[in-house]
Design a protein around this nucleic acid. Structure first.
Lengths: 190, 190
DNA sequence: TAATACGTTTAGAACGTATTAAACGATGTA
DNA sequence: TACATCGTTTAATACGTTCTAAACGTATTA
């Protein structure tokens, strides 16, 4: 008679599957994470597969992604040669490793290309058009640099500090945003 | 003899195509934006298609996305019934509308599902397992709320304020991060 | 050793998305 | 009116990704 609890679980699994897919991990990865996150104890590969109605092979691959991102750990139990998985519960840790492992490299790649682009433009013959291009490339670079600084900041802080930072930012509305409280956004913790 | 300038352009187009794809817009959308961004004047549909080696129909669809995200505007010229496109140059504006139009709705959807999940768990029969679930759902909710506040803050600020905010954050390393300058991250503006 | 229970790998099927080519409607021009 | 030039829509195709089913290798048990 814990049908309600099952539906609760199922809904969260779907929610995380959705988010996961949105952020470029597969839907499955998010669902796996969700299942593990709500399970009282670690789950075996087959168990996860059964819950989500997927194949072992499928889970095997997806779970590796999750491990690499630090979202899932594997564990063992004496006298049982199965592998068990459990979810990392600290979302700040996860956000950080995701930022560092997924976004940062992709970002750096584009940034490098932008720099090369700037270099090439600098080597082109002087012309009004070249100035146009260089100016625009310059703005883009400035933007990139600022985003990059922020990313680095987030990456260099401990998860705890990261959380604190976000809290500071979130409560700084009055001083900076000015419109947030007028719109009745950001309600106080209830 | 502005081959260098062409290569510079091409490289930026590729960089933005890459980023665009990474962020869930098509590669094409980013490439279109890049082409427009570096062009001194607005480009016609066919012109863009020719530059990127794609079809009119393709561009027509992709450019609509970009318009909806506020990344591209269309313009006209007297005595010419062609439509021209030009890129929005303010990245803060773009980041904001992207956050609001793409991320926020998706985020809200998952958040609503999470809340429903919490509700269901609350209705389940009391048990150790239910407490487990509710506690985890609670942490997740807390995380979501904090992220949500931050998003709302960013959305409610003007692009200019948003930029200022980021600058403040980026220069606040010493006080908060503590590790960033040790790691020689965040070099000063050169 | 043989048999069983795992997790992983692989080739192929299924699926969704991006792209094309062609048709279409609308708008201007001879 | 006939014709040409646009942008858009549509049906078909190409492409990449995800998932499955089966084979495989390894470790454990009898």
């Amino acid at each position: 008679m814990d049908e309600k609890l099952d539906r609760s679980r199922e809904l969260l699994v779907q929610a995380l599957g959705r988010q996961s897919s949105f952020w470029g991990l597969g839907k499955t990865a998010g669902e796996i994470y969700g299942a593990l996150y709500l399970s009282p104890d670690p789950l075996s590969l087959e168990n996860v597969a059964a819950r989500l109605g997927l194949t072992k092979g499928n889970i095997s691959i997806a779970v590796r992604q999750l491990e690499q991102l630090g979202m899932v750990r594997r564990s063992w139990q004496r006298g049982d040669r199965r592998v068990f998985f459990e979810a990392e519960g600290d979302f700040w840790k996860i956000a950080q490793s995701f930022l560092g492992l997924r976004h940062k490299p992709e970002f750096s790649q584009s940034f490098a290309m932008l720099e090369e682009s700037v270099r090439l433009a600098g080597e082109a013959v002087r012309s009004a058009e070249r100035e146009q291009v260089m100016e625009r490339l310059g703005s883009l670079q400035e933007f990139y640099r600022l985003v990059d600084s922020t990313v680095e900041l987030l990456l260099s802080a401990t998860p705890e500090k990261m959380k604190t930072m976000m809290e500071m930012i979130s409560s700084a509305v009055a001083g900076i945003g000015g419109a947030a409280e007028r719109k009745n956004l950001m309600p106080a913790e209830k």
